[in-house]
Design a protein around this nucleic acid. Sequence first.
DNA 1: AGCAAATAGTTTGCGTGCAAACAATAATTG
DNA 2: CAATTATTGTTTGCACGCAAACTATTTGCT
Lengths: 141, 141
Amino acid sequence: MLEIFDSVCILLAKAEQKHFQFTKKMLDERRLGITPGQMIVLYTLYKKDGASITDLSKRCYLDNSTLTGLMDRLERLQLVSRVDVPGDRRAFSIFLTPQALAMREQVFAVMDKVAEIMLEGCSEQEIAAFEKMLRNIFAKL
Amino acid sequence: MLEIFDSVCILLAKAEQKHFQFTKKMLDERRLGITPGQMIVLYTLYKKDGASITDLSKRCYLDNSTLTGLMDRLERLQLVSRVDVPGDRRAFSIFLTPQALAMREQVFAVMDKVAEIMLEGCSEQEIAAFEKMLRNIFAKL
DNA sequence: AGCAAATAGTTTGCGTGCAAACAATAATTG
DNA sequence: CAATTATTGTTTGCACGCAAACTATTTGCT
């Protein structure tokens, strides 16, 4: 058997690889002008903005240094701004711009659409079991 | 709710992110001297070597250009060699070296261990359902 | 045979991700 | 209060991953 999907490790990696590419394509087709990584950061900020880079990196599960680059690109796109924190000259507060707030529903729509296609034909139970499995993997590793 | 795992898209991405890092760590701890990406290529080659880069890229589900870089690193590690194909001066055959063949079981052991930890406490049915789900996502996207 | 089209593989540019090293600033502690 | 330690955020270097552009062949077609 030449097929490498007999390994669940590879299967997980390749499913995500496909998912990433598909998301990128959909963001592109719908002219959102953002990438999948930026989408996750925006999604996190839609829940709450105004906190520091370090706080955001924890909520995004990204390294601080990864977020620096993402912030640079989001700032260049004028979707986010770094605002000085009074009382701590090291830190910034990250705020969404009006442009970012305006595209909120479109971002959600892309995520919903990707999930819909990805999970098409699956029962609620199957989806719940899948999510449980992913949470479990995240927690254990 | 500030937690971003209410999105199954993000959940999938983050589970794989963790999985990737965990694999990297384990390869490192066991002094295999290879990275997760290289591991997948080796795994594919253990099934069959001697074919072209293009053939290998299809079996690995990677772009040709991605594989070029991976091959460069694997060749530098002396785990793989590009051999000229008689009759086609554009192509190479990719062969595993004796060193690569010698570490076969260790590579499998890492993959098995990661899968074991990742799926610890899950029933056969749960695992089968999870794999089915991932195959389905790969197929649909 | 000669030219166009296809194929094999590489290079370059960009986005994502971490680790390690770094600078600047705050907090702690002796 | 001065010195050490901790924290915040950035930079650099490396590993993926793809798209697009490129080179060198080979194949196909007239």
